[in-house]
Amino acid sequence: MTTTGLGSVPGDDIREWMRAVLELVDIPFLPELPARPYGDMLSRTVAVLTELAADLQPAGWRLTGGGDARASLDQRRARAQLQEDLDVLEEYAYEYEGPLKIQVTGPWTLAASMERPRGDKVLADHGARRDLAQALADGVQQHVAEVRKRVPGAELVLQIDEPGLPAVLAGAVPTASGWSKHRSVDGPGAVELLSMFTTAAPTIVHCCAARPPIEVFTKSGAAGVAIDVSLLNNAAWDQIAIAAEAGTTLYAGLVSTTGPLPEPDHAAAPLVRRWRELGLDPELMKQIVITPACGLAAAPSPGDARARLELLRRIVDVVGEAADA
């Protein structure tokens, strides 16, 4: 049983956080620091895009056309910052051997967040969202290759962040006017784009929404799913059970991102209780990765976020004892 974080952390010191994640969790990750300009998950993902140019508007990122030559100043700055972060990763982790995780925004959340050149979301245009997904998939392949070159001993894990996918599937993403919603996407369509990303490296899909579409994630080829345990309803737990018995790794979010730090046994209790209620093999609990409920950018301070990551290993001990009981 292991631990990791889900990407975002507070503060603006990438060096401090790179040292911290190599020390505090079993699966270190490339930290995202949204407090910095171009440090949020969307900007980092725009930095990875190939063949598509984008600029940053007051409403967010907007596609402006194809070709790197037309990349905006904002996109070039996002790319420069990502390269600087990779330099820090290489400096601190070059001799590291073991699992190492990187994160990118998934194609559906990106399409629901970015605008087309003439307005409204990329999600509205079937061809545009496929082009965006393909450009992202190509960029992710290059990103994975670069990280492997910089950290040769790493066993790379790719995290795809899809917080917006439940709304996409439900037809709940508002149009630009706000008067209507974008047409829903069906499950097979969602699987089709996600499956572009599950061959670059062992992939987990992260969705800390109340109804994560677990079946979509597993059908796309994801090796793991990352969820907020506190939000799961009965239907979601049933899907988790099916996935776990099929060999999918559960990244169980058990530590809230804000508020008082829980005691380890209290934090572990919802997972252990549900596991037993579902009649799942206790041995399968030993394959679980314990994480915070979501990214830690909202934590009140870097020290608080560190404490939440430190708590994860104590929760592992409690869950491990339950698995052996």
Score class of each variant (00 low, 15 high):
residue 8 S to N: 02
residue 5 G to C: 09
residue 67 G to N: 07
residue 215 E to W: 03
residue 108 W to N: 06
residue 263 E to S: 13
residue 83 Q to I: 01
residue 88 V to K: 00
residue 281 D to L: 09
residue 286 K to E: 13
residue 204 I to K: 15
residue 30 L to Q: 09
residue 162 E to K: 14
residue 129 R to W: 14
residue 218 T to L: 09
residue 240 I to Q: 04
residue 149 K to G: 09
residue 24 L to P: 01
residue 278 L to H: 09
residue 205 V to F: 00
residue 246 A to H: 14
residue 301 S to L: 04
residue 190 A to L: 04
residue 172 A to W: 05
residue 245 E to T: 10
residue 104 V to T: 14
residue 311 L to T: 09
residue 221 G to I: 15
residue 234 N to T: 14
residue 171 G to A: 05
residue 84 E to Q: 14
residue 205 V to Y: 03
residue 29 F to I: 05
residue 3 T to Y: 12
residue 281 D to Q: 05
residue 255 V to I: 12
residue 111 A to W: 08
residue 34 P to M: 07
residue 9 V to L: 15
residue 64 T to Y: 01
residue 209 A to C: 13
residue 181 K to R: 12
residue 179 W to L: 15
residue 47 A to R: 06
residue 21 V to P: 00
residue 15 R to S: 15
residue 284 L to D: 01
residue 132 L to W: 04
residue 96 Y to S: 05
residue 232 L to I: 08
residue 82 L to H: 05
residue 283 E to D: 13
residue 73 L to W: 12
residue 106 G to Y: 03
residue 264 P to K: 08
residue 55 D to I: 01
residue 114 M to W: 08
residue 244 A to G: 08
residue 205 V to A: 00
residue 230 S to W: 07
residue 100 L to C: 03
residue 20 A to F: 11
residue 43 S to T: 11
residue 167 A to G: 13
residue 249 T to P: 08
residue 68 D to T: 06
residue 217 F to C: 09
residue 318 V to G: 09
residue 143 H to F: 15
residue 9 V to Y: 07
residue 301 S to K: 04
residue 234 N to L: 03
residue 268 A to F: 06
residue 289 V to G: 02
residue 85 D to Y: 04
residue 71 A to I: 00
residue 140 V to C: 06
residue 232 L to S: 08
residue 94 Y to C: 10
residue 286 K to P: 00
residue 97 E to I: 06
residue 42 L to R: 08
residue 43 S to I: 07
residue 133 A to Y: 09
residue 255 V to Y: 01
residue 91 E to Q: 08
residue 144 V to D: 11
residue 257 T to N: 12
residue 228 D to L: 07
residue 309 L to G: 00
residue 254 L to F: 11
residue 268 A to D: 07
residue 185 V to A: 13
residue 170 A to C: 09
residue 1 M to P: 12
residue 51 E to G: 08
residue 92 Y to C: 01
residue 192 E to Y: 02
residue 270 P to T: 11
residue 216 V to H: 13
residue 93 A to Y: 07
residue 176 A to G: 05
residue 183 R to L: 15
residue 146 E to P: 05
residue 28 P to M: 01
residue 14 I to C: 03
residue 209 A to F: 00
residue 168 V to C: 11
residue 81 Q to M: 10
residue 234 N to G: 07
residue 11 G to D: 02
residue 158 L to S: 03
residue 320 G to L: 10
residue 12 D to W: 01
residue 89 L to V: 08
residue 204 I to V: 13
residue 171 G to L: 10
residue 241 A to M: 05
residue 144 V to F: 11
residue 292 P to E: 06
residue 98 G to M: 12
residue 255 V to G: 03
residue 38 Y to T: 10
residue 268 A to V: 01
residue 140 V to N: 08
residue 164 G to C: 11
residue 44 R to N: 14
residue 44 R to S: 12
residue 214 I to Q: 07
residue 3 T to D: 14
residue 234 N to M: 10
residue 240 I to S: 10
residue 189 G to Q: 06
residue 147 V to F: 03
residue 82 L to G: 02
residue 186 D to Q: 12
residue 46 V to H: 07
residue 174 P to V: 10
residue 47 A to F: 01
residue 178 G to A: 02
residue 54 A to F: 00
residue 96 Y to C: 07
residue 121 K to I: 01
residue 99 P to D: 10
residue 170 A to V: 02
residue 11 G to Y: 07
residue 111 A to N: 04
residue 54 A to T: 04
residue 255 V to K: 07
residue 316 V to M: 05
residue 200 A to E: 08
residue 109 T to D: 10
residue 237 W to R: 11
residue 175 T to F: 04
residue 213 P to F: 06
residue 55 D to A: 04
residue 153 G to K: 05
residue 259 G to W: 13
